[in-house]
Computed example of a mutant assay.
Amino acid sequence: MDKEFQQKLAKILERNDWHLGIGDVENATGISQTKLRYWERKGYISSLQGKGQNRKFTYSTLMKVYQMKLYLDQGYTLAVAAEKAASKNHIVNLLKRVIFDRYEGTETIDGQMAINLGSPVDDPEHLIFAFVTEDGTDLKIFPTSILKD
């Protein structure tokens, strides 16, 4: 992936300006519109007011509502569920940043698809690759010459 496209894609995802109606959030999470409005009044979530005063929620808020529901189902209070969900959201944002900062493309190595995560900062002669398997993700380091073969 060329760097310019990578940067543009990262900005699009960072802006997170996809909007969903309150009914969409209800359908996706199982949380009623009444509860969503209550959570918003309490400051746990937020929305934008669209045309006709319809609430519009970002994808990030959808994920927060989903996380809150999981914590509530585990017996946490609403306040604690919101706090934990906000913390998870921060981790997700860090992971997105890592992916977009490090992604250099994909390669086929020994018949397996590998994600090129670039060189370690102090070792430009090697590349880090992530191999996703059914059992998880493995990281392996190869000499940069692997791309020339």
Rank of each mutant, 00 (worst) to 15 (best):
I22N: 01
A86P: 00
Y71L: 07
I99A: 14
V65T: 12
Y59I: 14
E104G: 05
E40G: 05
E40Y: 05
V25M: 05
S60E: 13
Y38Q: 09
R15G: 06
G52W: 10
Y103E: 04
G50S: 09
Q112I: 03
S145K: 11
R102A: 10
Y66T: 12
Y38L: 13
S46K: 12
R37H: 04
P120M: 03
D138V: 12
L62A: 05
G118C: 05
I31W: 07
G50A: 09
L70S: 11
T61W: 02
Y38T: 09
S32T: 15
L94Q: 14
I115D: 07
S47R: 00
K42N: 03
K56L: 15
Q33M: 12
I22C: 00
P124R: 03
N116P: 01
K88A: 09
R55N: 03
I128S: 08
P124W: 05
K35M: 14
Y38C: 00
N16K: 03
N93C: 08
R37E: 03
S32H: 02
G75T: 06
Q67P: 00
T34I: 11
V80C: 03
E134Q: 11
G23I: 01
G50K: 08
Q49N: 09
A130T: 02
R97E: 13
Q6R: 15
G30C: 01
T29W: 07
H90E: 15
E40P: 07
I12G: 00
V80G: 01
K3V: 13
N89W: 08
Q74E: 15
G21F: 04
V132Q: 13
G105T: 05
L48S: 11
K69D: 03
R102H: 11
N93S: 13
T133Y: 09
A130W: 11
T144I: 15
K8I: 11
I31D: 04
K11F: 07
A82Q: 02
L36T: 01
G43Y: 04
L62V: 05
P120G: 07
D24Q: 15
K84L: 15
K42H: 05
D110L: 08
K56T: 03
Q67A: 15
L72H: 02
S46M: 10
R55Q: 04
Q7M: 10
N93R: 14
K51T: 13
G30D: 05
D2L: 05
E40V: 06
T133N: 07
A86E: 14
D2N: 15
N54I: 12
T106N: 09
G23P: 00
Q33T: 12
P124A: 01
I91E: 14
R37G: 01
L72P: 02
D101H: 10
N54G: 01
V80D: 13
V25I: 15
L139V: 06
E14M: 02
I115E: 11
L13A: 07
E104V: 04
H126Q: 09
Q6Y: 02
D110Y: 08
F129Y: 13
S119Y: 02
Y59H: 11
I91M: 10
